[in-house]
Amino acid sequence: MAKVLVLYYSSYGHLAKMAEAVAEGARQGGAEVDIRRVPETAPKEVAEKAGFKPDHSHPEIEGVNALPNYDAIIVGAPTRFGRMPSQMASFFDQAGGLWATGALNGKVGGAFTSTASQHGGQEVTLFSIITNLMHFGMTIVGLDYGYQDQTTLDAVHGGTPYGASTIAGGDGSRQPSDIDLGGARYQGKRIAETAAKLSA
């Protein structure tokens, strides 16, 4: 049985919901799954002014040294000006020792994200996450077109071949749709199945 980590950062709760869907899919793929979040690093006054919702949905990860315990790591983070936010970047910046020892080489990785608008940088943000994972020597699994709902035009929704995604709206009022959550489940399942094959 593959062991999968769903690791995320969420300012307003959208990525926490997506993380749960990714984890659900990974469990459907036969994996043992942990959901963890990275610490909030924004100053309290900045977070309050921006209306961040304190995230207590899942426990914080114990640190970068927990990463090698997993066969697959699926990373979720919202976009900040077309890249992953500083909270997630700060976490990975502490993992130089893992890179130096090749501790994550050959593990499976994937990414998911959220943006305020349809064209708010989803694919670029996913690539900023994927780039980190590839530098750690991980094998990347995206959201392939086996999930055909991502190609529909009947409603506004997320979904890219690089990873599951959702659209939050400029005021954060839009919640992940059934299509968005379905893509997250699909990707989680595919990653779990791939990890099981590679670790067999």
Rank of each mutant, 00 (worst) to 15 (best):
G142C: 04
K107Y: 15
R174Q: 12
T113W: 05
S177N: 01
T152Y: 05
S114L: 08
Q94P: 05
D149N: 09
I129D: 06
F81W: 15
T151A: 10
R80T: 04
I73F: 06
V156C: 07
V75D: 14
L98I: 12
G102Q: 05
S165E: 08
L104V: 03
P176S: 01
G96P: 08
G159E: 07
G137L: 13
D144F: 09
H157M: 01
F112P: 00
D71I: 10
G146W: 10
Y147W: 05
I74Y: 07
D171V: 04
A164W: 02
Q148G: 13
M138Y: 00
R174A: 11
Y162E: 06
G76C: 00
A103S: 15
G97Y: 06
N132L: 05
D144R: 07
F136L: 01
G182S: 13
T79I: 06
H119I: 10
I129R: 09
H157R: 10
Q118A: 09
T79H: 06
V141L: 13
I167H: 14
T131D: 15
I167Q: 15
T160H: 12
S90R: 03
G172K: 10
G169M: 12
M138A: 01
R80P: 00
D154I: 13
D149A: 14
V108M: 01
P78G: 05
Q150T: 07
S90M: 10
A168L: 10
T166F: 13
D149E: 15
Q150L: 15
G158N: 03
I140G: 04
G170E: 11
Y145G: 00
T160G: 10
T151N: 03
I167W: 14
T151I: 04
G110A: 08
S128G: 12
G97K: 14
H135F: 06
T131W: 11
A111L: 02
I129Y: 04
L153T: 15
G109S: 06
Q175F: 10
G120S: 07
M84W: 13
T166K: 09
D144L: 02
N132I: 13
S177Q: 04
V108D: 02
A111Y: 03
N105L: 15
G142W: 13
A116E: 12
T139K: 15
P85S: 05
I74D: 02
R174M: 15
S128W: 14
G120K: 03
T101Q: 14
Q118V: 12
I179C: 04
M88N: 01
T115E: 07
S177E: 01
L181Y: 10
L98W: 06
F136H: 05
L98N: 09
Q150G: 13
G109E: 11
V75I: 09
M88Q: 07
